[in-house]
Amino acid sequence: MHNFELVKPTTIADAVAALSGEDAQALGGGQTLIPTMKQRLAAPTTLVSTTGISEMQGVCVDDAGRVCIGGATTHATVAAEAAAHYPGLAALAGGIGDPAVRNRGTIGGSLANNDPSACYPSAALGSGATIVTNSREIAADDFFQGMFETALEEGEIITEVKFPVPQASNYQKFLQPASRFALVGVFVARYADGVRVAVTGASESGVFRWSEAEAALSDSFAASAIGGLSVPADGMIGDLHGTPEYRAHLIGVMTGRAVAAAG
């Protein structure tokens, strides 16, 4: 890996200042970025670590009842501390990668990277979460803009993510056992005003909402409600782990399982 300078600010303001330099990049837990740098697919000259910023750490509930998670909070912390408030989200966090990865990887890092097979984007989109950055708030529906693409500007960092808590929710991941990413993952969340269904791992455009299933499940929240629906294979990822047709089929299967498990 090419060398760089590591900066460890303790406030968001200092981090933003450090990120204004040329070829500076934010570093969360590094569980994706460090392997990427080893392959020389990324070569920043400055890395700005967010893990020492205390105002970006932890899980709390705001006055509107939303679960608010600091951008530098690890998956392990979310799994432990969000369980009482938003069990579907905590369970998703507790299934990312493996225990050692969960002790380092952060929610902000995962969402900013927007890997098309990552778990967290489905929770954010499936919850209609709000992504808070150092300069603005972005609705999840506007945040994810395709494979590895987000609405984040250069030097902008995710400081917090606010999740409205659903009445019921569940995430079902069809594990790709070597990488432990989702071959297909579906997050289902039932709110008073309707059901949201977000799919990760499947589409070449990254995480997306399955609107036909949302409409059917909003009418009847049961796995049988989506029995007649299918997702076209067009635009789905095809690789040695699964064809586009296989992934499209799995979307229906995993959605049904998530609805059944959410109850």
């Binding site: 590591l6 460890k8 590094g30 569980q31 460090i34 392997p35 225990p99 050692a100 002790n103 380092r104």
Partner: peptide
């Protein structure tokens, strides 16, 4: 593996198991 897959490099940092091949030494300062 040096790609954070295999886990043979696991150590504890402040009590938490982490993959020491996927953490910069300066992060453990």
């Amino acid at each position: 593996c040096d790609t954070s897959q295999c886990g043979s490099c696991v150590v504890h940092v402040n009590g938490a198991a982490v993959k020491s091949c996927t953490l910069f030494a300066l992060e453990a300062d």
